[in-house]
Design a protein around this nucleic acid. Sequence first.
RNA 1: GCCCGCGUGGUGGAAUGGUAGACACAGGGGACUUAAAAUCCCCAGGCAGAAAUGCCGUGCCGGUUCGAGUCCGGCCGCGGGUACCA
Length: 850
Amino acid sequence: MTRYAPAETEKKWQKAWEEADVFRAERDESRPKYYVLEMFPYPSGRIHIGHVRNYTMGDVVARYKRSTGHNVLHPMGWDAFGMPAENAAMASGGHPKDWTYQNIADMRDQMKPLGLSIDWTREFATCDPEYYGQQQALFLDMLDKGLIYRKNAVVNWDPVDMTVLANEQVIDGKGWRSGAPVERRELTQWFFRISDFAEELLEALDGLEKWPEKVRLMQKNWIGKSRGLEMAFPLTEPAAGFDRIEIYTTRPDTLMGASFIGISPDHPLAKALEAENPEIAEFNAECRRMGTSEADLEKAEKKGFDTGLRVRHPLFPERELPVWIANFILMDYGTGAIFACPAHDQRDLDFARKYGLPVIDTFVALEDGKPVENEAFVPPKSEKVKWLDHFTGLDVATGEEAIEATIEKAEREGWGRGVTRYRLRDWGLSRQRYWGCPIPVVHCEACGTVPERKENLPVRLPDDVSFDQPGNPLDRHPTWRDVPCPKCGAPAKRETDTMDTFVDSSWYYARFTSPHADVPVDLAEAEYWMNVDQYIGGIEHAILHLLYSRFFARAMHLTGHLPGKAIEPFDALFTQGMVTHEIYLTRDENGRPVYHLPEEVDREKGVLKATGEPVEIIPSAKMSKSKKNVVDPVDIIARYGADTVRWFVLSDSPPERDVEWTAAGAEGAFRHLGRVHRLAHEIAASDAPANEHDEALERERHRAIDDVTRGIEGFAFNTAIARLYAFTNAIAKSQAGAEAKKRAVLTLAQLMSPMTPHLAEEIWAVLGGEGLIVNAPWPEADAKMLVEDTVTLPIQINGKRRSQITVARDLAREEVEKHALQDEAVQRALDGKAPKKVIVVPGRIVNVVV
RNA sequence: GCCCGCGUGGUGGAAUGGUAGACACAGGGGACUUAAAAUCCCCAGGCAGAAAUGCCGUGCCGGUUCGAGUCCGGCCGCGGGUACCA
């Protein structure tokens, strides 16, 4: 008998699929289509176990849908622009392009042995000029439609390297290479008007029924619709050309608790005051000496500066409030100015206590309402509270009621307007980097900003660049940068910023429907293939990538590049958990982390093998190359074969949950597949006659079909596999005849085929299945074979399981109760008394309360 | 800080509000073998007990319910996102 030898058989079946060209997807109106897509990878150079998990899940869905008669589109490509390629070029002197294409070749070589049912004829990389040229065409059409505009925005500026840093490159407020404290600096940048779509993107979330609730909730909160009041506080004396400060608040009901006005260091008034007051200039400069990330700003120590200016409270003209510049107020939200109500906002309270500002209660709890001391009183807006002499006359009311009453009063009296605002900001797409899609515009002194002509697309990245100095090499590339104006022909300069890589990944799913078209998307193909029926990817993309894609699909529709049906491009979304692994780090002389590979660390002693230096161990974190905690699955594939790895990653954990990676257990998966292989050969050689055990095995076969099918449909791959273990055990133990066993093993092979396609083909061939299993229709369970005549019910006494009874499946409730009360354990517990209550849940449980 | 998740045996995990620990991994015992490997069989949450069985047990505290791992409230811990990592 042949041993299970995946190294040989997996290649053989991959060749058979290739020769039959089974995974090529062609438009075919006569068959229902199914488009399954996994989030495409960044070509870091090595696949990691998270990729394997992601693509195996997608492959299970793709293969299952194929066998249920669908015309399946299952493509693969590369999210190939981005910072790591430039970092590699800076570190080792190569070119981002060479690095990227080499990585793609390497990763493709690592992926192919997995036997994924991918239509490789549709493969592309976002750094292919054929792709990014079409992206430039989309940009021009969107610019023409008014979906894109320019404005100033802040970036992280490294004053030593004289370059813009990504948030990731700012560590503890310092540039990652120079170590210099970063500054916030304003640049003119391109923006998508995504905030114009805030309401629509919010409302459409309700229709995404096949998306996880948590993702919809995250997006809802991110869009952040709020109802509030816009109003102005007049300055007691005009200053720096301002006579008032416009604020926006979602809690106008607490206006009488206002204790000061806070403005952002980037507020126009704050900037104007810098010219007059060197102390303010210094304070603002200090505030700007930090990164731009929201997390950093919010977590930074709260600091303020009293401008000395005063405003008059519009409702209580006798009250004057001081105007402070505060580092925690963001210019991007609202108007960049707030009124602070320390009694009902913890951050305001901390600030007030620090600077000795008043704390004025506006409401207290209904029961034992006490004034605020060191903890702000912030009940839910829907909770009734006792108002203290409220200006609307309310006494006991909820926050919501008080807000509405305040807005109504403000509008009636003319000192404020109720407005709806969104937290969502426009999407800045400019990046001051080389390795991205060039923004196809030219800046002309006479004509201003001029779009490139479409016939000149793609605007190709120049190859002759170097990364031996910091900054964007496009800025110092005269023959690429200096071009004639497309409009007037005068000397002009190309835009040297490139696009955010999120733009690349916001439409690749549409490009896959016609990857070689000479327009961005062939509408006939998109009409057939869109939408993506099942999208699969990491939960870390729950907001940005998915929200940008939803916006971009709408923008593409408005510019005629997608049919209206595709404005929500992903019908169903599954967010897989991340594969995590320990991180090992030491610190350099400046306290900055230095990461180490697992093999460099003595895990037992917690030290570096080479130096004996102690390492910090972070127990669990997302795998990332920069943190050096990526585990390479290639060795395991080489050792056990693709089917074992596929089986193992699916069986190991529920797909939506994060998993700490450990290879322990892969061996067991391999042994099991070997067992299935052996079982198939034994049964193929058997001629045991039909007998009385056949029916039981046949019933088990139908139950397995039913359970596994439901497991796959519901993304419960781990339990589907547990069921397949049980089915295998049942076949092995069964004494049924050879025919019944053959039927069972053929079904086992089919049920396993989405997970372990090579082994399934092998078994199918051994047992004389017709053609390739990949082309065989999915087995169907006979409902009649699934029902049992009797059912065993647990009996609880006072909610604790004490006994059980076996009764006919359809026995009446009263009869079940009667039987249960006869039970010995129940009799003992009752001790002759009548039960207080008996609960019978038919088919499930009996609970006797004594 | 804010938003969203997650927390169950030695380990991965299972469980429409209804028998907590399915199915595995690691482990222990046994069969086969000269031996080993491979394979097959059995055991296995904790405590007490020879056993029957009893008590305890799903991060912690409280609540709803005949019944809570599951629902609600409050904590603790961990993870993701936080708009220039992808």
